[in-house]
Design a binder for these strands. Sequence first.
DNA 1: ATGGTTGTCCCATCCCAGGA
DNA 2: TCCTGGGATGGGACAACCAT
Length: 324
Amino acid sequence: MFLNRRLMSPELLYYKALGKRTELNFEEKRNLYNIEKGFEGECLYDQVFDETGHDSVYVLRDLYLKTGKSVTQFDSIIISDERVAVNEIENYSGDYHFENNSWFRNGRQLKDNAHNQLSRAKGKIIQLRDESKMKFYVDGAVIFMGDDFRLTTESEHVWSETVMRNQLRNYFRKFRDERLGGSAKDIVHLVKSAIAENPYFEEAADLGRIKRGLYCGECESFELIKKRFQFKCSACGTVESNETHLLRTMSDHKYLFYKQPITKQSILRLIDNQISEDGVYRFLKKHCHSEGNGRKTTYTFKYYDWLETIAEIRENQRYKDKIQ
DNA sequence: ATGGTTGTCCCATCCCAGGA
DNA sequence: TCCTGGGATGGGACAACCAT
């Protein structure tokens, strides 16, 4: 059973939002590509797990866990009564080789590798277990999702903790005999009690660099024709309500300026005053939690991102979106 | 045609920052 | 410390106009 959703990371949402408002530089494009590819690998992993079935285990995905003073990322944790399996999911392509304790990609030695991350992650779970005096076995595997990925090594140890794309179904099927009882629930509680926020994300966009204003949700054009309650895209004809535009703006703002609070003024700046102050104020009240009073009022977006919300809201919006 | 939501305008009040 | 200006808040009234 999947116990939580897999969401796009703040980094991915940041680069996506940034890319709509400015031309990404080389490094940003590379980051976006890598993060997006990693996310696709994780989604494919979920899909295969769904197809194979996961009724006999609890699965927690995409977590940061705090043990002692360090925070570690986990792609997937599979929990049953007597066992916790940590999965490190990679979507590499190309030729990887392991020899003499070193990893090589296309002949070049790598500074870091997934199997090290896996043993760190396993170590953290073992630490949690020992501190809580619970009893369960911890193992794990690096899952390589790429079709175009080849691994060569003579290390039995590496192979024992490696699952290739074409072995994944078999790997998942081995969990079918696991049991879910009280102790599995206890382990889930233990893991959940260690959940921490993503500590690595510190990016903030440069307001001078990004294009301000509203853009079409379909074709991303900034050429919009203002109607009374909606905007019509002059490029593709899509109509979106002010509310939809503002939801997208709040979501963009959240990730573009992750550590900075939302204010009415900062939203007005980001949308270049294309929607009235009153309107912005109303929708901020509706879709954000507000904190503070007077000039100090700040808002935090109620939802993870706007896509999460818009699916529900679109049905009941007074002024409907019409996607071309 | 109708109902309901939003834009716009107005007004009173609250809050904060900066100056006297 | 107090005063004052300006932004933020929030309520009301009315018009506009989209969706049904």
